[in-house]
Design a protein around this nucleic acid. Structure first.
Lengths: 348, 348
DNA sequence: TTGTACGCGTTATCAA
DNA sequence: TTGATAACGCGTACAA
């Protein structure tokens, strides 16, 4: 079981100095053709590759991006990762993944772990717990150490860093307007508690759409789900809450849900109550998931372009990493990714 | 924008030597209480953390695991990653992700990239293209350099390395037997071309189940899909092929599909042909996905325990990495994860 | 044309 | 009790 070959070993074998080998391999003009040939041939034979760790230490640059997400078993986040990976690899970076599992402490620990030299910068979406606690000291510390952060989707709005967000407000607004144009008179909203930033924005979009059409929002039509419950109990509880929503409000003819699961559950409940989709109730969800496409009826959704978000985030981060010549004052941008309404069978 | 603080800076600031600082921080008995206190206080104040890269270089150990998968936007693989990450973090390792995107060359490049010192070992599932080409030189090279590999799910059977696989054959066999017990007489199989190792095994399970029940397999009932087609065109093509399957065989009353999408498509096509599920046709899929749970009717599936596979793979790899005292001859094991039949609405 | 010396940040060993 | 030195693997400025 032989180790990887190093410059030193090549040098010893060929009885030249290490720097000669180094230069020969980088095709330096300083080295004679003879030696170059000899060294290069030998290196090829033994499949020499420079050690990344040594390079990282020397260059104080790892060419690695750390990505911290709350959950990986999730279409949105895995698509974002794919986008990040795509761009990162193209630009010569690796991607190292940390999962916060929606926990504040795991987020902190993971970041500290990676921040100690393993990576050059972060791309992250904050955990629900962090959103609740509103404790952002780890982000500030990381940044004050000169390590850039790009936040995506769930961001801290008053933090000085690059951000990539979905146009949640307008995405929601457009969706609700679509329902209104389609003739819906009584549109229910199924959303999350307000501390989830994206849920809040989508709620706002719903309200603005109603307002624009001069419709008075009814509190009864708005269902705010506490999604900190665990997944197993959640499904039953969810459907129950939605059933109450339908029963408490006669004549719901449209539903806007801030994610895929809520939307699907709404369809399920509606059908159980004898309502047809889209004839009696039209439903729109907010998501990039697979369920929408394959459900029956398939679900009209507001697409978030998750992969594009990942790509953009990676580009922003790498640009920052490579622009050492940047202007004195830090310049941060917030990129807003437009949503797209994908019409399927759940709307007319 | 200050950099991270180093031993050297602390030493200079406190006017002691670097090694004193190092020892003081590790609470060495060699150092006086006074100095220790002073150094530790200062380090805490400036939030000193040793640089991982320097440690990696020195220890020739990165404490990082590389995971190479064909695709991340996929429930099975993201669940595996979660399992790997869980165990890895618990045992003090990070996880770095490489995507092959089902391409041989990307797999090779990604592995070379990571093998040059970035990681201590690999966990991987090989790409379809690699399976077709049967070119495994990169695995052999990596291992001959002393870097351990753990393969999962899609493995190379005659390769000397640890493996974690699903019991594809028996999982399939059990599923088909379930259909037989439920009264199915004419069971169709929707599978992949044989070069996909798991597809092949599941096909074999189907055949064995029939054989056990002394049923002659009919070639017409077996549909082998070429899944190298891209995703967009695939859905239509897929449904078309399945429709042909149904039309060519009157009286299909059971379908076993080697993945979720095939199973769902089968249900869709069956319904379009006026067949009821599970009354007229019973369907079982093979997967860990979300679609099964939320489809209508929900799909009975053979669960693969993806997360458990990831956990096991990580344990195997880390054990190998940390057992330097191992026996002389290399010892490799293949762990077989049992499947579980999750019964839902698509079977009686 | 080749080799020496240095530094990246750390720890271990040995000397003072 | 403290400090100097070497080493991990590499690239480069400078000396020979």
């Amino acid at each position: 079981m032989k180790r990887k070959i190093t410059l030193k070993q090549i040098a010893r074998e060929l009885e030249v100095s290490i720097s000669t080998v180094s230069k020969a391999l980088r095709n330096s003009a300083e080295i004679s053709e003879d030696t170059k040939q000899k060294v290069q041939a030998f290196a090829k034979l033994y499949n020499y590759r420079p050690n990344n760790i040594a390079l990282s230490l020397k260059n104080r640059k790892t060419n690695t991006i750390g990505i911290i997400i709350p959950e990986i078993v999730h279409h949105f986040f895995s698509k974002v990762i794919r986008g990040v990976e795509l761009v990162a690899n193209k630009r010569g970076y690796n991607v190292i993944v940390g999962l916060s599992n929606e926990s504040f402490s795991k987020e902190v620990i993971n970041m500290e772990m990676l921040a100690n030299g393993s990576i050059d910068g972060f791309i992250l979406s904050i955990s629900k717990e962090t959103q609740q606690l509103q404790d952002y000291h780890h982000f500030n510390e990381t940044m004050s150490q000169g390590m850039p952060i790009v936040m995506f989707d769930r961001v801290v709005s008053d933090m000085n860093c690059d951000k990539v967000i979905v146009d949640d407000l307008n995405g929601a607004k457009n969706a609700v307007e679509k329902l209104l144009r389609n003739g819906c008179k009584s549109i229910a909203l199924i959303t999350t508690k307000d501390y989830v930033s994206v849920g809040k924005l989508r709620t706002q979009g719903y309200l603005e759409a109603l307002e624009k059409h001069q419709i008075q929002p009814k509190a009864d039509l708005i269902l705010k789900i506490d999604d900190t419950l665990d997944y197993e109990t959640r499904l039953d509880a969810l459907e129950n809450e939605i059933k109450q929503l339908f029963k408490a409000n006669n004549g719901i003819d449209g539903v806007f849900a801030v994610n895929e699961l809520y939307a699907l559950s709404a369809m399920k409940v509606a059908r159980k109550l004898g309502l047809n989709i889209p004839e009696d109730v039209q439903v729109i969800g907010f998501t990039d998931g697979v369920l929408s496409k394959h459900s029956t009826p398939s679900l009209t959704t507001v697409s978030q372009h998750a992969q594009q978000m990942g790509e953009k985030a990676a580009d922003l981060l790498i640009n920052k990493l490579e622009n050492n010549i940047e202007t004195e004052e830090e310049y941060f941008q917030t990129v807003i990714i437009a949503t797209e309404l994908i019409e399927r069978e759940s709307t007319k």
